[in-house]
């Protein structure tokens, strides 16, 4: 870990200003991702702005009938919230499928969206990695890549976005609310929030320096059956090989978002449009343009199989 300075921000605006004014500053929320990366010197912030006490820990209804989730709401609290469990069950299910109880107690809504990849080469500073050290090459592509992404990848990087929560957020068409150093606010649709790697895999979101997430807003509830299915090598405490968030409507429509396979939480209009034709059609539409390695080509059939499982369960319910 490199020495760094630390301040506890007193307001959202002050936090944004502080972070923008110091080169290499970072916000810290639960710290469950950032601190691990700092210990390994994968992240080397010079200054930490603590955003834990800005009152961003409330969940409230919006005038439009949706739900505003404070950026600092802990994953545990969000998963247990009565409204979320009733109206956005897929989000609750995705959250409890992630990490462990201890981690979820610390992890926050914004931190979870911004967690970084679990690519093992990213985690070893002696290895080439374009995301960690632009221009150094990609260690994973011709190496051990079983867990990595097959969609949205580039010649520079095939890292997966490891979040479960973000997959449900993507399914629910969430928007990410921010404030920047000038005090300007914006609402970023989650589909546009994460960037694909292209040839700049170190750039992961559209956030500008100092721009702070204040909340994530969900539109009004989407009725239907909410499911989250996470496929992994052990029963708990493992990242997804493939995960599927889905809402099945009564009329045969459905929507799907995927984790474990994309450079960002993955959802396509084509996939949703194929819903009525069943698992195979949805898989084919979703996987258009997929690029696999020798290690992770199993994810292609696994997407279809996982969808097939969900369809079968849905039929059993109907």
């Amino acid at each position: 870990m490199k020495p760094f300075t630390y301040e506890r921000a007193t307001s959202v605006e002050a936090a944004a200003r502080a972070a923008a004014s110091v080169q290499g500053a970072r916000f810290i929320a639960g710290g469950t991702n950032l601190l691990d990366l700092m210990k390994l010197q994968i992240e080397t912030p010079t200054h930490l702005v603590d955003v834990n006490r800005l009152g961003l820990d409330r969940i409230e209804k919006t005038e439009e009938g949706g739900l505003r989730i404070g950026a600092l709401v802990r994953n545990t609290d969000l998963a247990a919230d009565a409204t979320v469990r009733r109206d956005y069950a897929v989000l609750s299910r995705a959250l409890v499928a992630g990490a462990s109880g201890q981690l979820r107690n610390k992890a926050t809504t914004a931190g979870n969206l911004l967690q970084r990849t679990r690519c093992p080469y990213f985690y070893d500073t002696r290895m080439p990695c374009n995301k960690r050290k632009p221009g150094s090459g990609c260690g994973a592509m011709k190496g051990v890549s079983r867990s990595l992404a097959i969609l949205g990848v580039s010649d520079a990087c095939i890292a997966q976005h490891p979040s479960d929560m973000a997959v449900a957020m993507r399914l629910l068409d969430a928007q990410v609310d921010t404030v920047d150093a000038t005090g300007a606010r914006r609402a970023i649709p989650i589909a546009d929030f994460h960037l694909l790697p292209g040839d700049t895999p170190h750039k992961e979101t559209v956030l500008k320096a100092g721009e702070i997430i204040t909340s994530v807003t969900l539109p009004g509830p989407i009725g239907g059956t909410h499911v989250y299915r996470k496929v992994r090598d052990r029963a708990s405490y493992a990242f997804a090989l493939v995960s599927v968030a889905a809402i099945f409507g009564k009329d045969g429509t459905a929507r799907f978002a995927f984790g474990g396979i994309g450079a960002k939480p993955w959802r396509t209009a084509e996939g949703d449009a194929a819903a009525a034709q069943g698992a195979q059609a949805v898989a084919e539409a979703t996987l258009a343009g997929a690029r696999t390695t020798h290690d992770n080509d199993f994810k292609r059939p696994l997407v279809e199989k996982t969808l097939a499982s969900l369809y079968r369960q849905q039929e059993a319910r109907a």
Binding site: Y121, D124, S236
Partner: peptide, 14 residues
């Protein structure tokens, strides 16, 4: 490559 306990998986209680 998988030289930590997140990537070297051993059984958990579940």
């Amino acid at each position: 490559v998988n030289h930590d306990m997140a990537e070297y998986q051993v059984p958990v209680h579940a």
